[in-house]
Design a protein around this nucleic acid. Sequence first.
DNA 1: CTGAAAGCGCTTACAG
DNA 2: CTGAAAGCGCTTACAG
Lengths: 341, 341
Amino acid sequence: MKKEVTTLKKIAQLLEVSTSTVSRALNNHPDISEETAIKVKKLAKKLNYMPNIFAKGFRQHRTNIIGVIVPNILSYFTSSILKEILLQAETKGYRVIISESNNDIKKEKEMLHTMLQFGVDGILMSLTKHTVDVEPILYALNQKPLILFDKVSRKVPCTQIIINGEEAAFNAVEHLINIGKKRIAILKEFEQSYNSEKRFQGYLRALKTNNIPVDEKLILSTDDISLKKGRRLTSQLISLKDKPDAIFSITDAAAIGAIQTLKKFNFKIPDEIAVIGFSNSLSSTIVEPKLTTIDQPGNRIGEMAVKYIIEEIEEPKENSTSKTIEIKTNLIIRDSTLLSI
Amino acid sequence: MKKEVTTLKKIAQLLEVSTSTVSRALNNHPDISEETAIKVKKLAKKLNYMPNIFAKGFRQHRTNIIGVIVPNILSYFTSSILKEILLQAETKGYRVIISESNNDIKKEKEMLHTMLQFGVDGILMSLTKHTVDVEPILYALNQKPLILFDKVSRKVPCTQIIINGEEAAFNAVEHLINIGKKRIAILKEFEQSYNSEKRFQGYLRALKTNNIPVDEKLILSTDDISLKKGRRLTSQLISLKDKPDAIFSITDAAAIGAIQTLKKFNFKIPDEIAVIGFSNSLSSTIVEPKLTTIDQPGNRIGEMAVKYIIEEIEEPKENSTSKTIEIKTNLIIRDSTLLSI
DNA sequence: CTGAAAGCGCTTACAG
DNA sequence: CTGAAAGCGCTTACAG
């Protein structure tokens, strides 16, 4: 079945030169005479020569593989980041190995280990929402370039690519205030989720800036901010004596759940209760009313992640300069906050 | 930065045995005395030994990497297949390299080439919708085990994992007939898309079986069956003198577009016009009315793809036994075909 | 400008 | 049961 494979040695024999010469010719080494170089390249092409990447990687201690670990590949936002990672890595001559931790910290740790064992040149990683022990990550960082994106942790001293979550939330909540809303609820995550916390900070700052008192009863947390939880938390909110007049959810999914529940109980959206989500998912334009939300450019995140990891791979610095790159988001105003008047 | 790495040689020196012995001990070779084996393993563990996979792969002509090429990673269905591929491959000790062809046949060909060059052990592949020239695929198949899934081609003599598209479409259309529909339109793809064609066959068979005449005006094709096209084609349909009383779309996206247009022009769904989609996407439960659709179990496809590719990798057969595995789908009936009476 | 030789870390046929 | 040695395909410091 397998076809005879062309090696440097074979080319060398046919041309009656040494393998060193062939190797150098193919790698554009300056010492080689143009004549030889052309001759070698021609034959290599004719024989459909493909370097054995494993021999090469093994020899050079480089694999040209970037490892990526994400919590959940099914998320549209994650897919859009991965799409760009694949594209950028490919154009720069890197291959990408993807692993999914499924929000399981044990799996996350194992994957980190196999990535290292596998000899990837660098690692891009988005943490599970339960990751608190960063020891395994520090260990990996000690061996290879490593960058965190989207779901990050301050406890890891490495380059981090994130969105401007605090500011985005601030803008979203201020938008609600601008359309006259005063009792703004927030649906957020329960755990020490970095992203959730950032967005919550933005929420608090927007209220403060506009002299709106914080009402604890309007701050709801859950450990899994899904569509179903959005429904459930919204049921809680509308059974309050003092109902909210707006809901800011830190995910689109929960925001859509909120809309479903509000409609079920015949609340007018946005006149009685406005809703804002986060991430501009596909479904945000399909739900009715269309959801106002924050667009997070996954492609920019992917692009930056690849750019910086390759930089760190190709120019390793002694004193790790760990920067934080903030990607700008965009508030997209749709019917769920567009007053009909 | 990089930590000192443990090699076989180092373990051998510390234990004053040969590297051969260490290698054999670690690989559970039967010849090694239990005493030695234990001693070696203990030290290896203590030193956190990780075999250099590249040396190993290089030596054994095996990489334990499966290459996957998909047209578009952003599709939820594709992601769900990938999710399972990652999971299954990992549990069986394989790593996965993913590439995205972006429905570009030139890129698809390049990717196939780099996968081979990279030395993957096997390739899983879902074709672009423009792939007609299968030469590059035949070439790859000649070198490595290769399996097609979801978007396949009969022209490639290899194992193929598909859903029962013809039957699924047949059931969907028959369901429409059962609720009393007689003028059933189909939105399908223009090009020689294998999946589209299968579903169209199912549509035709259902009509025929139920003695419903085929009306060419109800058969609409497009080269990109998206939400927008769903809207546009539906506008066409409702401007017919003889309007349809049901629409079967071969994608959920176009079905949702259809619903949006029907609602805009105040058609009652499903009473006046019923709608069925295909693939049970996330949005199919968010659109109103909720969309009747066909659930394609992406996980089953992923599972089978990994199972068979590993089989072919580990037990290469001379005469390639190319089977076709059909995964059963499921019609999910929701409001878009549930008559209110 | 070119070649001979060493070596990357591992496995394995051969010998004992 | 263990070891010495060869070799996987490539690159590169060294020599000329």
